[in-house]
Write a protein that binds this DNA or RNA. Structure first.
Length: 404
RNA sequence: GUAGGCGUAGUUCAGUUGGUAGAGCAUCUGUUUGUGGCACAGAGUGUCGCGGGUUCGAGUCCCGUCGCCUACCCCA
């Protein structure tokens, strides 16, 4: 038997309806916040991700679906969504329209070659938003509020953690201080952290190792070393969240996995889906557009992990909907087709081609959760009528075929 | 890549010290005339993941292999 590849899944029935429900809900809310849809290719030049996500990250270092295509291009399947959107933003010269704001939402498959586990697949799906051209911290707040709206609408409980990663003024200095601190306790830190000190020292901060965390209690904190601008933006953000009654906690060790973030960083976390608990993450990335060759443009964005959210979402109760049609004598099936076609202009219709007893038809209609069970039997043929039962109201009636 | 757990019917699982393969759910049919969800009765379905080995005999024991799940790492 041919099976789907490891870490790749089919979604059908109840699962696929949860999947589309999440996307529909997020889409509606994003539109209300002024976002419009952008579709970008799954396959991109490998360079794009190496430059944006960063070669020090595991995503680029060892998790990409990367290959040489038949035209000898070094390509890879996107491991995340932001880089492609930024590339499209620059390629379409939107960066040149400096006073305009652009807001895009997207959703689609992302690929990372990792060992699958709960909440982590090799092909997974994200819904995300990217806002370009706004450097005011208000936009950071509005984006967080929007994610809050999406989770509220989906009936999902979450914890919000925020941090500031500083900017090119305050980060380098902090980074040096941190490296100095880490080198002092190097021998006591775990192996992974020792590697990270050289590759990406900021990442040591969110090491899960308990021993490392206890050593880090005394590490210099970035939020204590922010420059004036970063610090006042961060305070403003907290103030806005407070006044909007959005609960959050400041996690000074919160680091984004991708290198392009600066200033505001946030993560929405759930306690009830196992180890992979981040259900949304994002922040500001003011340098990325310029870094990818565009004109300097501030930007903020986020992404939701759809599969992780699927574990949490409470679906609204499914209502009875549409028509089920059947006959009691096989010679009459043809009579259903024009009736069904007419109803399909506005409703969903399922036709049972096989003749059955009335009881079996009612069961069939019930099983597919139809609102109406429509049956043609002996009497109906004689009188040119159809028999209709409203399965919800439990009422039945007969209609002339032409009036149906 | 590492560690632990698990692979038996469509599905969830049971299967005692090795002795011809089981249950619930689902499906289909019936419970006398054309009335759903409930109840009752009946029916079908298996390369016991795959390959070796031990044995008169293996779902059960041993070895190998593949797959799935969870966790580490990393991240949404």
């Amino acid at each position: 038997m041919i099976k789907a590849l490891r870490g790749m899944k089919d979604l059908a029935f109840e699962e696929s309806s949860r999947f589309t429900y999440i996307i529909d809900t997020a889409t509606n809310i994003a539109k209300r916040y002024g976002y419009s849809y952008i579709e970008t290719p799954i396959l991109e030049e490998t360079k794009l991700f190496k430059r944006s996500v960063g070669e020090s990250s595991d995503i680029v270092g060892k998790e990409m679906y990367q290959f040489i295509d038949k035209g000898k291009n070094d390509v890879c399947m996107r491991p995340e969504g932001t880089a492609g959107v930024v590339r499209a933003f620059i390629q379409n010269r939107l960066d040149k329209r400096q006073n305009e704001k652009f807001k895009f939402y997207y959703h689609g498959a992302m690929f990372r070659y990792e060992r699958p586990q709960k909440g982590r697949l090799r092909e997974f799906h994200q819904f995300g938003c990217e806002s370009f051209g706004e450097d005011l911290v208000y936009e950071d707040f509005i984006i967080i509020q929007m994610i809050g709206d999406i989770f509220k609408s989906l009936g999902i409980d979450y914890r919000l953690e925020i941090n500031s990663l500083g900017c090119s003024k305050c980060m380098p200095q902090y980074r040096e201080n941190l490296i100095k601190f880490l080198n002092e306790c190097r021998d006591e830190l775990c192996q992974d952290c020792n590697r990270r000190i050289d590759t990406n020292p900021i990442r040591v901060l969110d090491c899960k190792n308990k021993n490392c965390q206890s050593l880090l209690i005394n590490s210099p904190k970035l939020i204590d070393n922010l420059c004036n601008s970063c610090s006042s933006d961060f305070n403003k953000l907290k103030e806005l969240l407070d006044s909007a009654n959005i609960n959050y906690s400041v996690n000074s060790n919160l680091v984004r996995g991708l290198d392009y973030y600066n200033k505001t960083a946030f993560e929405f976390v759930s306690n009830s889906i196992g180890s992979q608990s981040a259900i949304a993450g994002g922040g500001r990335y003011d340098k990325l557009v310029e870094f990818l060759g565009g004109k300097s443009t501030p930007a903020v964005g986020f992404a939701l992990g759809i599969e992780r959210i699927m574990e949490l979402v409470k679906m609204p109760n499914r209502k009875r909907e549409g028509y089920y049609m059947g006959v009691m004598d096989s010679s009459n099936v043809d009579k259903l087709f024009p009736l069904a076609h007419k109803k399909r202009e506005t409703s969903s219709v399922t036709i049972e081609y096989r003749a059955k007893k009335l009881k079996a038809h009612l069961k069939g209609a019930d099983k597919i959760n139809a609102r109406y069970c429509v049956v043609i039997g002996e009497d109906e043929v004689k009188n040119k009528t159809v028999w209709v039962k409203d399965l919800e109201k439990r009422e039945e009636y007969k209609l002339k075929m032409d009036e149906f």
